[in-house]
Design a protein around this nucleic acid. Sequence first.
RNA 1: GGAGUAGUACUCAAGAGGCUGAAGAGGCGCCCCUGCUAAGGGUGUAGGUCGGGCAACUGGCGCGAGGGUUCAAAUCCCUCCUACUCCGCCA
Length: 428
Amino acid sequence: MIDINLIRENETIVKENIKKKFQDEKLAIVDEISELDKEYREVKIKMDNERAEKNRLSSEIGALMRDKKIDEANEIKKKIAEMGEEVEYLTKREEELSKLIKEKMMVIPNIVADSVPIGKDDSENVELKRFGEAVVPSYDIPYHADILARFNALDKEASGRTSGNGFYYLMGDAARLSSAMLSYARDFMIDKGFCYCIPPFMIRSDVVTGVMSFAEMDAMMYKIEGEDLYLIGTSEHSMIGKFKDQIIKKESLPITMTSYSPCFRKEVGAHGIEERGIYRVHQFEKQEMIVLCEPEDSEEWYEKMWQYTVELFTSLDVPVRQLECCTGDLADLKYKSCDIEAWSPRQQKYFEVGSCSNLTDAQARRLGIRVKGEKGNYYLHTLNNTVLASTRALIALLENNYNEDGSVNIPVPLRPYMGGKEKIEPVA
RNA sequence: GGAGUAGUACUCAAGAGGCUGAAGAGGCGCCCCUGCUAAGGGUGUAGGUCGGGCAACUGGCGCGAGGGUUCAAAUCCCUCCUACUCCGCCA
């Protein structure tokens, strides 16, 4: 959501932005909003005036009652009663209009950064930089599910029976490795000065609609039956939701937190759930980082944040690249976003392991997260980034540390979390 | 899950149908005092949000949220949410 004033003052910017995002069908919505807003303001002026008059008369009654002038008071009561219908109509219309405007505003995308490359879908995302050497070993790297199978570490048949497609049992050293990576990622961010947090794993609908667009909500969120609760798709949801309707003191900014949570995703959409492996699943675990900061600082935080992920993966001997989201692939709430992709020596291409986004004030506006300013309160900026997502990171780690004999080296930083183990060996 | 108590601005807090958009205090501004700090004294000031206006200013709404009663609600009634206390149940 953007500021309605932007439409009032400079509709062109809003429309140009929509075109940049190849959502021309939404151009008409801007016009509709303009129209509705005009009527809204007319109605509001009328309504306010009527109410002012009513209030004035009403307080006269108060004075008359004190003086025991009952008859005169009754006269005025009659007058007020006559106004009732008009006020009621205006009030209803005002409510209708502001609701309509709000609904329509919700689908207007955030203004994207000038630096975001123009493109219509993910095929036009732009690689910005590579980190580490993308090695292609002389021997074949098996599919990650096959690597895991040799460790006796993955049972999808059982999870199919208990939970259906898209779930998994991860066992033994591979499961331990997954936890080790998460612990390492947590400590990595704590060392960067972020505050560790374990948030609620379920949130209410008002928080959900505050942190994501409706399209995302339908495609991602699991709803708890009979309750106004959703399973979180990422801890970003509960972490940003934490500040809903809060007025933050200037001194406490920036707020930098790193959170752990399981993540639940329906993954309804183009890709769906694949049969084998753990690349796209309904459930994984994730260490996340979020920042709430002054508007003028968000660009700088964005740069810092994606670099932390690069640093983390590099320390695990996983080559990565930064892929910038083009306008068409950028979710509506986002100002700028990039994926961190890990090298897959098997496929000899990069695949997504994390995503860093600057939402500017879009989430803050929806959720009412403001900063107390000298003259008036204002919305702060929110950013989020993956530190490490368990399943994707595990795939990257297995592939990039795979030896010809089927064993997988455990990168040095993870060894303390693995009881000192240096390798995972296939079972005989 | 049951029972009770509470929720007022950035914070604490008065307020019990009209004179309350809300006393008082902290806070914040300025001044004084003490060598500095802590503390103290004096004085001033603002308040959230949506509109109108170039502006000074002005109107609506706003006392956890949403409804209701009334000409009029922070105040009365209903529902919900949250926090605390007690009981129950449990990792």
